[in-house]
Every structure is written in C-alpha cells, then in structure tokens.
Simulated assay, not measured.
Amino acid sequence: MAEFSDYIVYVDESGDHSLTSIDPDFPVFSLSFCIVKKDDYTRAVVPSVQALKFKYWGHDAVVLHEHEIRKSKGDFTWLLTDRARRKEFYEDLNQIMVDAPITIIASVIDKLKLTARYPRPWNPYELALHFCMERLLMFLTSMGQQGKRVHVVFECRGKVEDAELELTFRRIVGGANQWGWVSRDFSVMEFEPKFAKKSVNSTGLQLADLTARPIAIKTLRPEQPNRAYDVILTKLGQIKEFP
C-alpha cells in the first residue's frame, strides 16, 4: 500500500446535475474541491471550527450547513432573532475561512448554455469532476505527492448515487476520457474516494459545503455583492466555467 498523502481533499456541490429538468432560477451546477494539508487541518482548521461551535452552541454536535445557515433553519433559527449575534457569527465564520490554509479548485457548469451548445451534452457532474480531478493532480504533483495515496472525501448522497459517482471517479483516474482532450496520467498517485454521511460531522466537508454555492452564485450573478466569494477568491487555485 502506498504511503498516505500529506493532503486530504473534501468535495461538495451546489445545484443538481440534471439536464432534463433545469431550474431557470438556478441553472448551474457547481463542484468544489477543498484541499488541505493534514497537519494544517488537525492543528488549525478543526480547532477553529470547534471553537466556533462551542462559542455559539456550547457543544460541537452542530453541523455547519450552508443552506440551513442561509435560511436560518434548524440549529440556526436564532439568526433570525438576534441580529447582533448574527453579525458576530458571520464575522467569525468569515474569519475562519480567511484564516483556513486551504486551496480550492472549482468547476461551474451553466446547464442552459451546455444544452444549447451540444446536441448530446455531457453529464455536468462528470464534466466538473474530470476538470477538478485533473487540476487536483497538477496541484498535488507540484507539492511532491507522487506515489502517495490521496483520499478524496465526498458526502453520501444515496447508495445508487454513490456507486455511480465512485464508478465515474475510478474511470477518470483509470485514464478513461470521452471528451476529446488529452487525459493526464493519474497513475503517478493512488486516488481513493471515500463517502461520509453528514452525521459524521466532518469539518472538511462542512468547509467544502460553505464554498460551493457562493462560487455558483458568482457565476450566475457576477454583479451581485458576494462577501463569501470574496473570501473564497483568496483560496482559489483555479475555477473553470463551462461551456
């Protein structure tokens, strides 16, 4: 078995990848890879997120979920009633993202443009995943991770969906390429997908969750003020918009 990589990758998405039923108000699909060095993750990232949870809830069982935060639902209903504490919370959360030693690689698919341009368009998830995986390979190679075992962590979506995603993932790292560009040699590292339920309360998956939608919104409505994206921008290794 190969030596474990110094880095770990957390993945989340925003929007759906269906091309048969496209929401006109949100016709994009965004995939975000959050890459972090394991030493930084254990020494800085996790402690900062845990401290935030203890400060605002008194425990660390809460899961930071972008949708619930934005809608003030579940553990975040108090954001509706306590404006001063809401402001403080967002400032603290933004500071965590500013301080987090992470690199983000993202891909955004405009599904309306994709279907208009191609008579038989590619699956948005596969297209986004292939781009992000190639850029991940380039990043890790630049960090001297050749020959090491890299875990890429996805949030569970369902037994069938996870099986399909794992198959697509293994095809990509196995060199399969249906899009006509030169595929990179993934064999220089050992990429391993892992699937985790939200209930495991993974700090890395929560950070990835906080990045995917702001990136999608920036692509969809570039003139709209987007403080979260402004923070994310300092972490972006690369973003690709299709088509």
Score class of each variant (00 low, 15 high):
205 L>F: 07
223 E>I: 05
47 P>F: 04
167 L>S: 11
98 V>G: 02
219 T>Q: 13
15 G>F: 10
78 W>V: 12
220 L>W: 06
59 H>S: 12
120 R>S: 14
197 K>E: 14
186 F>P: 02
139 F>L: 14
139 F>A: 09
69 I>E: 09
100 A>T: 07
212 A>I: 05
60 D>N: 14
169 F>G: 05
173 V>D: 06
23 D>C: 08
38 K>E: 13
242 F>Q: 02
22 I>H: 07
78 W>S: 12
61 A>Q: 13
111 K>Q: 03
59 H>I: 02
215 I>V: 13
170 R>F: 07
163 A>I: 07
200 V>S: 15
122 W>L: 15
73 K>L: 10
66 E>A: 08
242 F>I: 04
145 Q>V: 00
91 E>M: 11
239 I>G: 02
200 V>P: 00
65 H>L: 06
198 K>W: 09
184 R>W: 08
78 W>M: 08
30 S>L: 05
199 S>G: 03
93 L>R: 05
70 R>D: 08
114 L>Y: 01
89 F>Y: 14
64 L>H: 06
150 V>C: 08
188 V>M: 08
158 G>M: 07
7 Y>C: 03
95 Q>M: 09
90 Y>E: 12
235 K>H: 14
105 I>K: 05
26 F>N: 15
46 V>Y: 04
240 K>D: 01
211 T>W: 04
225 P>E: 07
52 L>S: 08
58 G>P: 05
15 G>S: 07
173 V>S: 04
60 D>W: 00
98 V>F: 10
142 S>D: 12
125 Y>V: 00
168 T>W: 09
91 E>H: 13
148 K>D: 00
147 G>D: 02
110 D>W: 00
72 S>V: 06
62 V>D: 05
92 D>F: 03
208 A>R: 01
152 V>D: 02
184 R>T: 05
224 Q>S: 15
216 A>F: 01
73 K>E: 10
46 V>S: 15
89 F>P: 01
64 L>W: 04
187 S>F: 03
66 E>M: 06
151 H>Q: 11
81 T>D: 10
139 F>H: 12
48 S>I: 00
120 R>Q: 15
83 R>L: 11
12 D>K: 04
39 D>S: 15
170 R>P: 06
142 S>E: 10
105 I>D: 02
174 G>K: 08
195 F>Y: 10
241 E>R: 04
